[in-house]
Amino acid sequence: NRLGIIYEIQGMKAVVLTSEGEFLIIRRRKDMKVGQQVSFENEDIYNV
C-alpha cells in the first residue's frame, strides 16, 4: 500500500500528494475528500 493526501478531485480521478513529494493521479473512490489521507495500490495509479 502507498499513502497520499488528496489534493484535488476531477471526475473519476483524484490527484494525491505522496510523502515523497510526488503528485499522482489515482482512481477515485466515492468516500474520498480533499485533504484526506488515503492508501492506494500501484494498480490504482493512472499512467500519464
Score class of each variant (00 low, 15 high):
9 I>S: 01
41 E>Y: 12
34 V>G: 02
8 E>P: 00
2 R>G: 08
36 Q>I: 06
20 E>D: 11
4 G>F: 03
35 G>H: 07
36 Q>H: 12
45 I>Q: 04
3 L>N: 13
11 G>Q: 07
14 A>R: 00
22 E>M: 12
26 I>M: 03
33 K>N: 10
27 R>N: 13
37 Q>Y: 04
40 F>L: 08
17 L>I: 07
24 L>N: 02
31 D>G: 14
14 A>T: 06
37 Q>R: 08
43 E>L: 05
46 Y>D: 11
1 N>H: 11
4 G>W: 02
45 I>R: 02
30 K>A: 15
8 E>C: 03
45 I>S: 04
29 R>L: 10
39 S>E: 15
12 M>N: 12
48 V>S: 15
24 L>G: 01
10 Q>D: 14
5 I>H: 06
9 I>V: 06
13 K>T: 11
12 M>S: 10
22 E>N: 08
43 E>C: 11
27 R>T: 11
1 N>Y: 13
22 E>L: 12
29 R>S: 09
6 I>Y: 00
42 N>I: 14
16 V>D: 00
17 L>K: 06
19 S>K: 14
32 M>D: 05
8 E>L: 10
41 E>H: 11
20 E>K: 10
35 G>C: 14
3 L>M: 09
14 A>C: 13
36 Q>T: 09
37 Q>H: 13
45 I>P: 03
41 E>L: 12
10 Q>N: 13
28 R>T: 15
22 E>F: 08
25 I>F: 07
2 R>P: 02
36 Q>N: 11
6 I>M: 02
35 G>D: 05
29 R>K: 14
7 Y>Q: 14
38 V>R: 02
34 V>F: 04
6 I>C: 08
13 K>A: 09
18 T>Q: 01
31 D>Y: 11
30 K>F: 14
8 E>K: 07
18 T>Y: 02
3 L>Q: 06
20 E>F: 07
7 Y>V: 12
29 R>H: 12
38 V>N: 00
29 R>A: 11
27 R>P: 10
39 S>P: 08
32 M>T: 05
2 R>C: 11
2 R>S: 07
3 L>E: 10
12 M>T: 11
31 D>K: 09
47 N>H: 14
38 V>K: 01
43 E>A: 06
9 I>K: 01
30 K>Q: 15
47 N>T: 13
10 Q>M: 13
29 R>T: 12
35 G>R: 03
9 I>G: 01
39 S>G: 03
35 G>N: 07
40 F>N: 01
37 Q>E: 15
5 I>L: 07
38 V>I: 04
45 I>A: 06
1 N>L: 09
6 I>R: 00
24 L>S: 04
15 V>N: 04
48 V>H: 13
46 Y>C: 12
4 G>S: 02
36 Q>V: 07
14 A>Y: 08
11 G>S: 08
6 I>P: 00
48 V>K: 02
40 F>M: 11
44 D>V: 02
23 F>Y: 08
42 N>Y: 10
40 F>K: 01
12 M>V: 11
46 Y>K: 11
48 V>G: 09
8 E>D: 09
17 L>F: 13
40 F>P: 03
38 V>H: 04
20 E>S: 11
7 Y>F: 06
17 L>S: 03
12 M>C: 15
36 Q>L: 04
14 A>V: 10
40 F>T: 04
2 R>W: 12
45 I>F: 03
23 F>P: 02
17 L>E: 06
4 G>Y: 02
21 G>R: 02
42 N>P: 06
12 M>Q: 14
16 V>Q: 00
13 K>Y: 13
45 I>L: 11
4 G>D: 01
33 K>A: 11
8 E>W: 09
27 R>W: 15
33 K>D: 08
14 A>W: 04
34 V>H: 04
17 L>M: 14
39 S>I: 05
28 R>G: 14
46 Y>W: 11
25 I>N: 03
28 R>L: 14
37 Q>N: 11
24 L>T: 07
6 I>K: 00
19 S>R: 14
37 Q>L: 10
9 I>Y: 03
35 G>P: 01
33 K>S: 13
2 R>A: 07
47 N>M: 09
27 R>D: 06
18 T>H: 02
